[in-house]
């Protein structure tokens, strides 16, 4: 089977983000960027399935500016076989259009499964996988915490849902979005990082895809969230309990 894994380059989760002073967005210049953590889990899952002999080839896809090649290389160093970059000017693209771009690549590559993070930690939309499966009219399993491929190529996916775990059985081709508990992504070893440099990345220009990427939801402004008012240091357990009971009224 062939897997397509989608990865997004985002501000590293350990960076404290800054809102631009003109409120047009979040500062990304000179900020450490990394692979979206949920997409790392997606790459890891594909590599695990390859190690089990279930998957033969892993294609790592990213949509973004030239710099997204680095993110693809990270995926290749973890165990991806080759990369595809759909090159943009770095502009933001609505998830629906991202879904349409992935579908374009899907139609070209005909993978058996698409694995991607449940959400990107920048726009927090949590839509792309669901959109893609709807465009493809194929099965979806979101928020996966366990993926088991059966002998008949059906897949049992355990999903993290509010209040518990749900297991569904889906058929290929399918879209799986990853949740935190699915696995712990590996660190790429130095030899694998070197090897990844030799792996092929195909670059497509987004303008050649004939997909209208005009934004349909406009961002009017981005602002800082309301500040938390300064707190107090209490001296002992009694005053803590007193504050929580009588001032905050929360216990």
């Amino acid at each position: 089977m062939k897997a397509l894994v989608c990865v997004k380059r985002v501000i590293d989760y350990n960076v404290k983000i800054r809102v631009k002073t003109d409120k047009s967005g979040v500062e990304t210049e000179n900020v450490k960027m990394s692979m979206n953590p949920f997409d790392e889990i997606a790459v890891e899952e594909a590599v695990k399935l390859k190690e089990k002999g279930v998957i033969d080839e892993i294609i790592v896809l990213s949509i973004g500016a030239e710099t997204s090649q680095e993110t693809i290389r990270t995926g290749l160093a973890m165990g991806g076989d080759r990369g595809v970059l759909v090159k943009t000017n770095g502009q933001e693209i609505d998830p629906l259009n991202v879904g349409k771009i992935i579908k374009y690549i899907f139609d070209k590559e005909s993978p058996d499964m698409v694995i991607l993070g449940k959400q990107a930690i920048d726009d927090d939309c949590n839509q792309t996988g669901q959109i893609l499966s709807s465009l493809l009219d194929c099965h979806q399993a979101t928020f996966a915490s366990k993926v088991e491929v059966n002998d008949d190529k059906t897949i049992n996916v355990t999903r993290e849902v509010d209040g518990g775990l749900e297991t569904i059985k889906i058929s290929i081709p399918c879209v799986i979005t990853t949740d935190l508990r699915l696995n712990e992504p590996r660190y790429a070893s130095l030899p694998n990082i070197m090897k990844a440099k030799q792996k092929k990345i195909d670059i497509l220009d987004i303008n050649d895809l004939n997909i209208d990427i005009k934004r349909r939801v406009e961002t009017i402004e981005v602002s800082e969230p309301p500040e938390r008012k300064p707190g107090v240091i209490v001296n002992d357990v009694d005053s803590l309990i007193d504050k929580l009971k009588n001032e905050a009224n929360v216990i």
Binding site: V26, I121, D122, D123, D124, S223
Partner: peptide, 12 residues
């Protein structure tokens, strides 16, 4: 909220 609530986007 975007960036896990570290920024708020007003969208239309």
């Amino acid at each position: 909220p975007i960036y896990a609530g570290n920024a708020i986007a007003k969208v239309k």
